[in-house]
Simulated scan of single mutants.
Amino acid sequence: MNAQLEEIREQQKQSWNKFSSGWKKWDQLTMDFLHPMGQSIIASIQPSGNNRILDIAAGTGEPGLTIAGMLNGGKVVMTDVAEDMLAIARANAAQRGITNIETAVCDVCELPFDNDYFDAVSCRFGFMFFPDMQLAAKEMARVLKPGGRVATSVWNVPDKNFWVTAMMGTIAKNMELPPPPPGAPGMFRCCKPGMMKAIFENAGFKNIQEEEVTTTLNAGTAEVYWNMMTEVGAPIVAALSKADDAMRQKIKSEVFELINSRYPEGKVAVEGSALVISAIK
Rank of each mutant, 00 (worst) to 15 (best):
K75S: 14
C106K: 04
A93I: 00
T214D: 03
E210T: 10
I277L: 08
E83W: 08
G59N: 04
A57T: 03
V276H: 00
L54Y: 01
G73P: 09
K18P: 06
K18E: 14
T152P: 02
S15I: 11
C109P: 07
G59C: 07
P193D: 11
K13E: 13
F188H: 10
E211R: 14
E10V: 12
Q95E: 13
D27V: 05
P193C: 01
R96W: 01
R90P: 08
G74C: 07
R142Q: 03
A68N: 00
V154K: 00
T30F: 14
I199F: 14
L34V: 14
D245I: 12
S122H: 01
I280W: 04
D84T: 08
K75A: 14
K160R: 10
A82H: 07
V255G: 01
D114C: 06
M1R: 11
I101W: 00
N17P: 12
P47S: 12
N72Q: 13
I199G: 10
I199C: 13
A239P: 08
M167K: 04
E212A: 12
A151Y: 01
N92H: 09
G194I: 12
E176D: 15
Q28S: 14
M85L: 00
I67T: 00
K75N: 13
Q209P: 05
D55W: 07
G272P: 07
M37A: 13
K13H: 13
E231P: 02
K160N: 04
T215M: 09
A246N: 10
I277W: 03
T79R: 10
G97S: 06
N92P: 07
M78D: 07
W26Q: 08
N156H: 08
A91N: 14
G61H: 05
A219E: 05
L144I: 06
V108N: 13
S15M: 11
L65N: 05
C106F: 08
L86K: 01
A3G: 11
I259F: 00
T79D: 03
I101A: 01
T216C: 14
I259D: 01
C123W: 07
D32R: 11
D116N: 15
V157D: 05
A151F: 08
Q28V: 15
E62G: 10
A68P: 00
A57H: 05
A93P: 05
